[in-house]
Write a protein that binds this DNA or RNA. Structure first.
Length: 579
RNA sequence: GCCGCCGUAGCUCAGCGGGUAGAGCGCCGGCCUCGUAAGCCGGUGGCCGCGGGUUCAAAUCCCGCCGGCGGCUCCA
């Protein structure tokens, strides 16, 4: 609990074979006990199964009916269900031209996504329906989606439910309140974050990290306003393509829009004078706060908000510079990821290629896509290709991260853009005097500070690495006689640039220690007359690691090393431990 | 935005087959002055999200709105 060292979230991947089997049984059970639901399709992943039904007529299914469905599926299984694969086909129910695998379960038809492996040895012994919601594959169609998890034993389900309740404790929304990091308020508006002092410390640390990265990459920081005339949004195309997410206001007969992206502002900097091929690359960065009016139901804690700060950057490049830039950015992304200890299976890298509708020439696309691909490969990163999923203006690489509940969120992104340079008529003068169009790269390493912060809060369950911790050390006097010394220690640490406080209240030392642990403070320094006499501290790290009577100077030195190297571990206490 | 669920003290929650509210933590005060994961006692605290309706009477039932949660869709 409170004393555990920072550890990455353990995601429990579910058994897909059992869940596929359960998905089929659920459909057969529905035909039996809920005939107003007609199965239309089903899919399975490491978070369970999802089954879609068309609702023929009558009431929306209730939670109780959902549970009954789960029970029926298990009882069908226990009385010996027969499951037979009967081939794949174009979907005749949906007429969506989706490929589905068809099965017969006890003689009735059931569907599953093609390629899903169905367990045929073990049996489905426990099913839990987690959610019944609407699924709209198209604007006109509405299906009932039943989501659940299945196990081959009651024990499996019990363990899963325990994991779920543990995952809830890591939830950044819960921890954000408990650790006094940020809040949302009805009177402010949904999706708009208020950062408290401690949350702002984390924000600032993340921004400081990216400032260093930007410096290495050669990005110069700029600052642009939050509101631009609609004229600009019309040129950029946002006014037409992004309008439904923009906040627009008419003032004195003129229309303005709050920025949903930072790029147009940076483009104006490029355009502010004529550029030579010698000037390129030009790289601009901004911690730009943008506003996007996401639909109500899409908002989700810090992971999906309406106002957020991007660690944005735009590079204006000659075509031959594109690949090096991508590679350099990817390297820095990998460096940043290493600071947080994300494991391979906790991130997903995607390369999205040319969609059906696109601008620019095929040759440009091929070159840019190839640049992205070879950059990833040369760095040995694992990735998946999403064919045709690129933006209309260019191909892109996205990095997705998993939250405590196993959901994926897009954070880092590198996008090649042929469109905006064209729309804004960007040019540079080539060595032969001809005018050429630069290529733009949009990139964000954290993506948004908000989303990234949420991911790491969950990753560490609030027990952040010391360099990120809002309070790095709490000094606790174990005897009243040591109060002054405790204050002195805290003051010294502050003078040395650490975030330290002395806890001088009238409570017992035990209570203060407990509280400091609960708040995730990485170092608790205990001082009494003994320490005061010799100018030392007793250091307690996370996980009940304690080293007694460390000279304060030595602790400061060790802490400085830990913080400046942005150590993932509690390097200071490791270094101080007697060997 | 769509489907379902939810909204009681600063926080977590009880009360909800109608009779105007409770606990723990926190906060405040007192005692204790403490060597390692919640010391003891007392007090404070609520327009029961907001508005309307039903009723002799609404936290409790109904409707609308606001906000949240789980999905869908979309994205950093």
């Amino acid at each position: 609990m409170g004393g555990d060292p920072a550890s990455p979230a353990e995601f429990v991947a579910l058994d897909q074979g059992i869940n596929a089997r359960a998905a089929l049984l659920i459909q057969a059970a529905a035909r039996k006990v809920l005939p107003r639901l007609e199965p239309v399709g089903c899919s399975v992943d490491d978070r369970g199964f999802k089954c879609d039904f068309s609702l023929k007529e009558g009431e929306w299914p209730t939670e109780a009916e959902g549970e009954a469905l789960g029970r029926e599926a298990v009882s069908m299984e226990l009385s010996g269900a027969s499951i037979r694969y009967s081939g794949e086909s174009e979907d005749e129910v949906l007429q969506l031209l989706e490929h589905t695998a068809t099965y017969e379960v006890n003689g009735v038809k059931a569907f599953l996504e093609p390629g899903a492996k169905v367990e045929d040895g073990r049996k489905v012994k426990a099913v839990k329906i987690l959610n019944i919601s609407a699924h709209n594959p198209t604007a006109e169609m509405r299906f009932v989606r039943i989501i659940g998890v299945a196990f081959d034993s009651d024990e499996g389900l019990r363990k899963y439910l325990t994991w779920l309740s543990e995952a809830e404790k890591r939830d950044h929304r819960v921890l954000g309140q408990k650790l006094d990091l940020f809040s949302f308020h009805e009177e402010v508006g949904p999706g708009l974050v208020i950062y408290h002092p401690k949350g702002q410390v984390i924000r600032e640390e993340l921004i400081a990290l990216i400032r260093e990265v930007n410096k290495r990459l050669g990005y110069e920081e700029v600052y642009t306003p939050h509101v631009f005339r609609s004229t600009l949004w019309k040129i950029s195309g946002h006014y037409r393509l992004y309008r439904d997410k923009m906040v627009l206001a008419k003032i004195e007969g003129e229309e303005y829009g709050i920025k949903p992206m930072n790029c147009p502002g940076h483009i104006l900097i490029y355009k502010s004078k004529s550029r030579s091929y010698r000037d390129l690359p030009i790289k601009l960065s901004e911690f730009g706060t943008v506003y996007r009016w996401e639909k109500r139901g899409e908002l989700y804690g810090l992971l999906r908000v309406r106002g957020f700060t991007q660690d944005d950057g735009h590079a204006f490049l000659r075509e031959d510079q594109v690949k090096d830039e991508i590679k350099a950015i990817l390297k820095e992304i990998m460096y940043v990821l290493s600071l947080f200890g994300f494991k391979d299976e906790e991130i997903r890298v995607y390369l999205s290629t040319r969609p059906e509708e696109y601008i620019g020439t095929e040759e440009m696309w091929d070159k840019a896509t190839e640049a992205l691909r070879s950059a990833i490969e040369e760095l040995g990163m694992r990735y998946e290709v999403k064919e045709g999923e690129g933006a209309f203006y260019g191909p892109k690489i996205d990095v997705h991260f998993r939250d405590s509940l196993g959901r994926w969120w897009q954070c880092s992104t590198i996008q090649v853009d042929f469109a905006l340079p064209e729309r804004f008529g960007l040019e540079y003068v080539e060595s032969d005097g001809s005018k050429k169009r630069p290529v733009m790269i949009h990139r964000a390493i954290l993506g948004s500070v908000e989303r990234f912060m949420a991911i790491i809060i969950e990753e560490f369950a609030g027990k952040l690495p010391t360099w990120l911790s809002p309070t790095q050390a709490v000094v606790i006097p174990v005897k009243t006689a040591a109060r002054e010394y405790a204050e002195e220690v805290a003051r010294k640490l502050s003078e040395e640039g650490f975030r330290a406080v002395a806890d001088l209240g009238d409570e017992t030392p035990s209570k203060k220690i407990r509280r400091a642990y609960d708040e995730g403070v990485p170092y608790i320094l205990l001082v009494g007359p003994r320490e005061a006499a010799e100018g030392s501290v007793t250091v307690r790290g996370r996980g009940n690691v304690q080293v007694k009577n460390v000279p304060l100077g030595k602790f400061i030195e060790a802490l400085r090393d830990e913080v400046s190297s942005r150590s993932l571990k509690q390097a200071a206490i490791e270094a101080l431990k007697p060997s």
